[in-house]
Simulated assay, not measured.
Amino acid sequence: MPKINVYLPEALASAVKEANVPVSAVCQAALTDAVQRIGRTRKGIMALRDPATPAALLGRIGEGIRTRMTPRLLAALETAGRDAKGRARGPVSSLDLLRGLLDDGENLAVRLLLSQGIDIDALAGAVRASHADESGPTAVESADALLGRLTMPGRLACAAALEAVVELGHNYLGCEHLLLGLVAGDGPAHDILVDHGVQAPALRQAINAAAAGVVLERSRSAERSDATVAELARRLDAIERRLAAGPDE
């Protein structure tokens, strides 16, 4: 049977040994799941990039990836799919997707843009002022199936976002991935982002740094929680010893 080396941080390796985790079985199960998930994702990417893919199939792909979307991305897509009066749009363009991201000033995509010195107000103004045409579906099958309503630049952006998820090794789809997809894609949203100084390599590095920061903070939070539990246990033990010693002690 072929052998694959798995490298772990020192603390995790020690914990795995202490817990006597069956590493081979766990890794095989995890890798099997990853192969299946990535395989489905790559098929979805190919379908999004194929102009001949039927809207019904795009709708099913959308249902499949919806469970992996963050709440903020779901909210951004909801905004992108509706016009100023709250009505469902027909074709949804790459500009609509970018507008949906910028509408929420707190998602990670916007925070990353701000960290790179991008003027969000100027960027949003350029999006609103743009009247660029994008080729869209000839017929919209359902107002609920967003992928089936996307223009080709919008579909290419979503395909690039999914590709970024695979390449970065993430198990979720967030606003930052869609932003990266818009920058790496093609169309008016790509042009506006590049004109305002947004570059895919720098954005990818920022996403990696943000992800590493989240992992570090979770690790520190866990350490603080362990220390708190240990302190509580120490105090309870001291109280029990005093009670057991009786009133004369």
Rank of each mutant, 00 (worst) to 15 (best):
L58V: 06
A11P: 00
P188Q: 08
L243G: 01
G59F: 01
L182E: 04
S24T: 15
A211N: 10
K43C: 03
L123K: 14
N5Y: 02
S93Q: 09
R42T: 10
D121E: 15
T79C: 02
A139S: 13
L168N: 07
N5G: 10
V194M: 02
L57Q: 14
A47I: 03
Q28S: 15
N20I: 06
A157T: 06
N20H: 11
G174E: 00
S93D: 02
E10H: 06
A145E: 07
A211K: 13
E141D: 10
A212G: 00
R99G: 05
A139E: 14
E176I: 09
I65P: 10
G100V: 08
L179P: 05
I38G: 07
L73N: 08
N107G: 09
L58S: 04
R111L: 15
P188E: 03
E18L: 15
P9W: 06
E176N: 11
V21C: 04
H196S: 02
E78M: 01
L180G: 03
L173F: 09
I192R: 08
V214L: 12
A184Q: 11
G125A: 02
R234I: 01
V35D: 09
T53L: 10
A25N: 12
V229M: 10
H190W: 05
L77W: 08
L203H: 11
L180I: 08
N20G: 05
V16A: 15
E141W: 01
D195P: 01
A11W: 03
A202V: 13
I118Y: 08
R72D: 10
G117H: 03
V110T: 13
A230L: 14
I207Q: 10
P137L: 05
L193M: 11
L179V: 10
A56Q: 09
E176M: 08
I45Y: 02
C27L: 08
V16C: 09
A30G: 09
A13N: 07
R128G: 00
I239M: 04
L147W: 09
L147N: 01
A88S: 11
L123H: 12
N171H: 14
V6Q: 06
D144H: 09
R72S: 10
R128T: 12
S115W: 02
E163A: 07
G90V: 05
L173P: 00
L102T: 07
L146V: 13
A13S: 11
Y172D: 02
L243P: 01
T53A: 04
S24I: 12
R218T: 03
E167H: 12
A210T: 10
I65G: 00
P71V: 07
A157D: 07
A238K: 07
E240D: 13
A245H: 10
G64K: 04
D195N: 14
V215S: 08
R68S: 05
V110P: 03
P22K: 04
A25E: 15
A15Y: 09
L48W: 07
A132I: 02
D121C: 00
A189D: 03
P247T: 04
G148I: 02
A157S: 14
M1S: 12
A132L: 03
S219Q: 13
E176F: 06
K85E: 14
G39A: 05
A238H: 09
A76L: 05
E141L: 11
G117C: 04
R155H: 11
E63M: 07
L101H: 13
L162F: 02
V215A: 14
